[in-house]
Design a protein around this nucleic acid. Structure first.
Lengths: 336, 336
DNA sequence: CTGAAAGCGCTAACAT
DNA sequence: ATGTTAGCGCTTTCAG
């Protein structure tokens, strides 16, 4: 087994409590004592046993970030920020992959089973407002993303309606009239993409453009393959679109691929935009115009807010809206 | 707080040990007793406190996957596989971001994380064979990737020399003669990319092509931006390359971007290939020819091997080489 | 088959 | 400023 507090105490000739206080700093410790203890710690290579600490304190120092897809660069970038922030605050971030699965999300939400984490940051996609509101569990929870809204929990998300409206308005401003939306929820799902589609419709209405349901292409998921498939479908219409807004960058990149493959020129014939500002879009051919949410802020706020809740310092549940801005690139730029 | 074993024991009128045995099944329990206990568990909603269990057992059920970059899709895809495998084996996978930092990798190797994880899967990039061999810590360790080789630990990696040789040979087979390598280690670093450069040189030699040091473009890191920068440099040479092999898909995609931007036609004028087979390369324009390692196998083996070590079932350290294969796509295909 | 009891390593209340 | 000590909830001998 490893080195324990007791070993350090013996080596340094002090009590357990003193070692604990050197490690945790709850109570002041005399300078010379501190040094003696510190030396013993370094020599023997002590590190605290998390399980024992948790058993005693009722906390693990672990928080989970539950996202629908680790391989979606948006979430990877977000996780990256969140991990650093958590580390800064003395917590370890555990990633949890929901795969956008309803049961998985519910389990996490109600997760009394998870005696292992102190709090949860969840990006819901398969569950809705009701499930979240009806939650029983006490585990501190922070929500991110556009999956739910108006819930009695801390919630961090950009103004998705405004983001989508901004992107669509930009396409309108380029003189486009048949603007498609790629990445609508399939069939009965009224939830995901809801806000972004609303922003899209608002921008069309503001420009006096008709809304054409056929230009809203449903997809199963929100990956590259989904975007490509949906775009191929749009290209087969009698009156295909002259602009495309993707639900996110990934679907937009899929659309880009379908267009290139069909020898449709982007941006001359069709312009394309996405939402997320993943690095991939800065290197795609053509590069992708997008809405850039402040990912750094989203990740930081989520972690800080959660830690505040865990440590009992939080006020009433708050809905926070980090900034976003339009980034114009080649996919909506002048023809190359 | 929560319901404990004791509560169940009292409710069911049995001892702690019996409840524990109903939960864990280490010892047989009488049928009627079992039912009484089970009913109490269901009624009170008991779930075991993992920290207590771990404190007692000396294990946490947590294993770490330490990778240089979470935002590199290759690692995200690998992590995805590893997380599922770990869950299947009853473990939770913790991601650790080394950022390719030497100190960070050494800290992990020497097990400052002791007590919080039961074992470590490490993809080293900044440390070398010596550091790994000279390791003191006892924490079970499995290495992945091409960062080190010939070490007394389980090590899982494709045959990187062969992979690179295969890719280069493919470019040679297309009739190319000035083949560049994008993503060499900068300056004094003799380690990273070592094997892939060796494979590249071997393939050139086998084809009777001269090795030209100017065609090996050094980069700081192995991201898209690095590839783009290196490619711009190569294009400025008096006698620029007619083919490019990227250290990985990301650098290759950066190269693709630089070429497109410079209006060099891929594949007509320059062909490009990478290594990793990330999804991004299946949707880039043009799509990217690459070497596809068996990521599923790598992730699974790494986790299984580590768990075997943790549970004391492992034999001698083994070096395992999952398969890889060449995937031909547009970037080396017939002109579009 | 079941029970009693000894800790795993740590923190925090209580002493000194 | 430092020491003593009682558990946190669980698994696992050792007894019956």
């Amino acid at each position: 087994m490893g080195v324990s507090l007791k070993d350090i105490a013996k080596q340094a000739g002090v009590s357990l409590a003193t070692v604990s206080n050197v490690v945790n700093g709850y109570r002041p410790v005399g300078e010379s004592t501190r040094q003696r203890v510190q030396r013993a710690i370094d020599e023997l290579g002590y590190s605290p046993n998390l399980s024992a600490r948790h058993l005693r304190r009722g906390r693990t120092g672990l928080i989970a970030l539950a996202i629908p897809e680790l391989t979606n660069p948006y979430f990877a970038e977000l996780a990256d920020v969140a991990m650093r922030e958590a580390a800064d605050l003395g917590y370890t971030l555990l990633m949890e992959n929901t795969a956008g699965d309803r049961a998985e999300e519910l389990t996490l939400l109600d997760g009394a089973q998870r005696h292992i984490i102190d709090g949860l940051i969840l990006s819901p996609v398969a569950i809705g407002r009701e499930e979240v509101v009806g939650r029983r569990a006490q585990l501190p929870l922070v929500l991110i993303g556009e999956g739910v809204y108006d819930v009695p929990y801390d919630h961090i998300a950009i103004d998705n309606v405004a983001a989508s409206r901004t992107a669509t308005a930009h396409l309108v401003g380029l003189g486009r009239r048949r603007i498609a939306f790629v990445g609508a929820p399939p069939g009965d799902d009224r939830q995901s993409a809801h806000l972004r589609i609303r922003g899209y419709r608002e921008a069309l209405a503001a420009a006096g453009l008709p809304f054409d349901q056929r230009l809203v292409a449903p997809t199963e998921q929100f990956g590259r393959a989904d975007g490509e498939r949906a775009m191929r479908h749009l290209l087969s219409l009698d009156d295909p679109p002259d602009a495309v807004l993707g639900y996110n960058d990934l679907t937009a990149i899929g659309a880009l691929r379908a267009l290139t493959r069909a020898r449709v020129n982007v941006p001359a014939d069709v312009v394309v935009a996405g939402i997320d500002d993943i690095e991939e879009g800065r290197f795609s051919n053509p590069t992708l115009t997008t809405i850039a949410p402040d990912k750094r802020e989203i990740g930081r706020l989520a972690v800080r807010r959660l830690v505040a809740r865990i440590e009992g310092e939080a006020g009433p549940p708050t809905h926070m809206q980090p900034a976003f801005h339009l980034v114009e690139r080649e996919s909506t730029g002048p023809a190359r």
